[in-house]
Every structure is written in C-alpha cells, then in structure tokens.
Design a protein around this nucleic acid. Structure first.
Length: 426
DNA sequence: TCTGGGGTCCTAGGACCC
DNA sequence: TCTGGGGTCCTAGGACCC
C-alpha cells in the first residue's frame, strides 16, 4: 500500500504557526510579485475567494472580510517543509519517503500489515502536527492515484475522519471513486476532463475506472492514460521514485515588479536569475549543457486583454558547466538578441537543461588549473551566501539597482532561517 | 495598472545513419 | 516506369502536476 501525506493549506498554515491569533480566521497567501492568490484557508474558501485569482480583483472582498493577506515567504515555507519531511522520515524510515512537492510526500507502506494502516496514518497525522504545528491529511490505498483520491476525500469531511482515509477494501474504493468528479482525478486536467464528459459521458472516477486500459491508451495520451486507468483499478503502475534522483531541468523565472523597457535592466535580471539557477545546479552536483533564455511581453493589440507573448532562445555550451560566470557569459548575448527597443517586458527567465553529474565532465587539457580554481571560487561564494545572506557575494552583471525587482509588500519574517528575524517574546 | 514559479512525462516528426 | 527498411537522436509542443 502507498500513502500520500498532504499539508492542509500549506503556506497559510506556515503563517499561522507564527501567528496563533489567526487560528480559525481567513488567511490567504499571494504568489510572487503579489500577483494572485495561491493558498487559502477553509475560512477564506468559504468566503468565495478563488484559487489562482488575481489579487487586485479579490482585494475588495478580502478587505471587507478582514482576511489576513501575506506575500509568499519561501524561506519560511521551505524550512517548514523540511521539518515536515524529516518528521515523516523518522516515523516510516528515510528510504520510504518520496518528497513529491513542497507540501506533499508519498510513503511506501508495503511492509506495513493492512490492519495497522489506519493507526499508522493517525500517528503520522498527530505527530506531524505536534512536532511542526502543521496539519496534514493522509490518504492510504493500493496505488498512488487511489491514495490521492483517498486524501482528497479525507479533507472533505475533516472532523469525522480526522483527515485520514484508508482504502483497504473494494467497497470503500468503489464508494470513493463514485464521490470523485472526473476533473478531480490526479492526472486528469481541464482538457481531458472536458473531453471525457462531452465525448464519453464520463463524470466520475468510477466510470473512468470501468473503461479498458486499451481505450485509455488511444484516447488519453497513450501510455499515460493506460497507467491512470490501471492505477484506478488498484494495479500500481506509478512506482516510488528514488529520493537520490536529481532534477533534469532547473529554471529560474520571475515577473518584474513593473514592466522593463531598458536592455540594461533585462540583462541584470537575467544575470541574477542565472546566478540563482547555477546555485541550484551546484547544490545537486550537476553541470548544465544547455541554457535557454526567455522574455515575456504583453501584446495589447486585442482590446488590452492579458495576452502574454513568450520568446526564447537557447544555446548549447561547448562543455557542460556549473560555473556562474560561464553561464552568464552564455546567457547575455541571448538577451541582446531577444531585446527589442520599445517593447515592455513583464517577465524573464532562464532554464538549464542537459544536466550531467559534475564529476563526469570531460576535463579540458588546456586549462586544468583554472578549472579547479573556479570550482573552489563557486564553493566559497555559495558558502558565504548560504551562511550570511542570499546575495552577499554576487556577480557584477547582476547589478545593484534592480529596478525590476518583484513586489513583496506583505511578507512575514523569516522566523526560522534568519537570526535577526527570530520571533521576540516579550 | 495590476494575472506565479517551478517541474514531469509523452508523442510526433524531422534529420540522419547504414 | 521503377526509388527500402530499420534504427537512433533530437526538438517542439501538449498535457499534466503542485
């Protein structure tokens, strides 16, 4: 059996841990740049506040109802996430935990006797809350897709089940699938949900389960659809991932605080993002073979509606590298090629791909000494930035003016990762 | 005026090879 | 008039996830 543990309204819950006065009050957290709403508590949901809705549109409703609003504070959420995951590892063993996202983890419970699952799930729920202050929901079932179904329903009637649901019998599975609308199934997005309803009259998960895997293969994107149906039939097809596996792509992209029109600002932003991406790269001991730069403009031609246009260019490095200045040197000419005078840029980003472990990089016979120095330099910069402040040491190309920096007007303190922001108790 | 920031997997189709 | 078959690798784009 497998379990999925999911933190309830994770970002909002993190804020509440340090603001107990907000317990049972509506809270929302905004995306970067205070753009839209990306986390809501139940109280905020019942006020009719939409997920992913633009902040400026919801603003009236939020103010009327005295909703606590926060800019996102990724230092805090990242650290709280680590505490939750560490707790899970202590309970079920480090090799049984697959961190799926910042607020979710799959657990491999294949070694646990079925009659003990319910108690274990409760223990997980209670221990995580006691140790971290974060409430979680636990869904347990024979496959990942079914555990997601269980997890979702366990939140629906929170108090009755205490956010725990175990699908260990066929009747329970059938009942759960019947209560799951097709669009809520993990792996069925808007596109497929519409198609399944309109073309095939499939409205819930049970109806989808009753289709054949072969049918799913032809109508739901090949092997992906087939796996989905098999998982619904309690045949596990999506296995646990090796926790040591590293990422295949690393991206850093941001909206600007206000539209950018100058090449200089665009270059600074891209250099800054490249530095960040390179840090992530080195943290997983990899080097990148390809760097892509993209910029987003808004095309106001059609009635001033929001209609972003993305343009990108990529370049293949002569040799994979994790060296910040080599990556910046490759990125900047791409920015210059993309830039058009007179355009208003809303956003820019870079992605690194073609990742390889950095110990497998082919050495360059002609610059062996410099290479080692570079590596040492990067390590030193990372250590200083990690232990002191994010951008204590940075590359000149990243600039100091930062006219384009994102807005974050309502951010809480970084209570758990900055000494000077520790909570003060009087 | 104001709409996030990451990721994954799969498929089709083109280029190229023998 | 007649013009193979089989394979690999790469990229773009679509769909999905939180």
């Amino acid at each position: 059996m497998k379990a999925i543990v999911d933190c309830n309204s994770f970002y909002c819950s993190c804020e509440r841990v340090f603001r107990p006065d907000l317990l049972n009050k509506p809270v929302v957290v905004l995306s970067n740049n205070d753009g839209c709403i990306i986390s809501r508590t139940d109280e905020a949901k019942s006020l009719g506040i939409q997920m992913a809705g633009p902040y400026y549109q919801a603003r009236g409703l939020l103010e009327q109802n005295n909703v606590a609003v926060f800019s996102s504070n990724y230092h805090l959420y990242g650290d709280m996430s680590k505490r939750v995951m560490d707790t899970l590892r202590m309970i079920v063993g480090g090799d049984k935990v697959e961190v799926y996202s910042v607020d979710e983890a799959f657990l491999d419970l294949s070694q646990v006797p079925v009659n003990e699952l319910e108690n274990l799930a409760m223990e997980i729920r209670n221990t995580v809350e006691q140790w971290t202050g974060i409430k979680v929901s636990v869904g347990v079932a024979p496959s990942k897709v079914l555990s997601k179904v269980a997890n979702r329903l366990s939140k629906k009637d929170k108090n009755a089940t205490e956010c725990v649901m175990v699908l260990d019998k066929e009747e329970k599975v059938v009942d759960a699938l019947q209560r799951t609308p097709i669009g809520e199934v993990w792996g069925v997005g808007r596109r497929y949900a519409d198609k399944l309803r309109d073309w095939w009259g499939i409205y819930n998960a049970l109806q989808l389960r009753n289709m054949s895997p072969a049918w799913a293969a032809t109508h739901m994107g090949g092997v992906t659809g087939e796996r989905l149906v098999r998982e619904l039939r309690a045949e596990p097809c999506i296995e646990m991932k090796d926790p040591l596996e590293s990422k295949k792509m690393i991206a850093t992209t941001r909206m600007f605080g206000k539209p950018v029109t100058e090449l200089r600002d665009l270059r600074e932003a891209v250099a800054t993002y490249t530095s960040r991406a390179a840090e992530k790269l080195r943290r997983q001991y990899c080097a990148a073979g390809v760097i892509q730069v993209f910029v987003v403009t808004n095309n106001y031609d059609n009635n001033y509606s929001y209609n972003p246009q993305t343009k990108g260019l990529y370049s293949t490095l002569p040799r994979p590298t994790s060296n910040t200045h080599e990556l910046i040197r490759e990125a900047l000419p791409l920015v210059e090629k993309l830039f058009r005078k007179g355009s208003r840029y809303l956003k820019a980003g870079i992605t690194l791909s073609g990742l390889v472990p950095d110990d497998s990089i082919q050495g360059n016979l002609f610059v062996p000494h410099q290479e080692n120095l570079n590596r040492l330099l990067m390590e030193t910069i990372d250590n200083v930035n990690f232990s002191m402040r994010d951008d204590m040491l940075k590359f000149c190309a990243a600039g100091v003016a930062k006219n384009w920096k994102m807005r974050q007007e309502l951010r809480s303190a970084r209570f758990t990762t900055r000494w000077e922001e520790l909570m003060v108790v009087k």
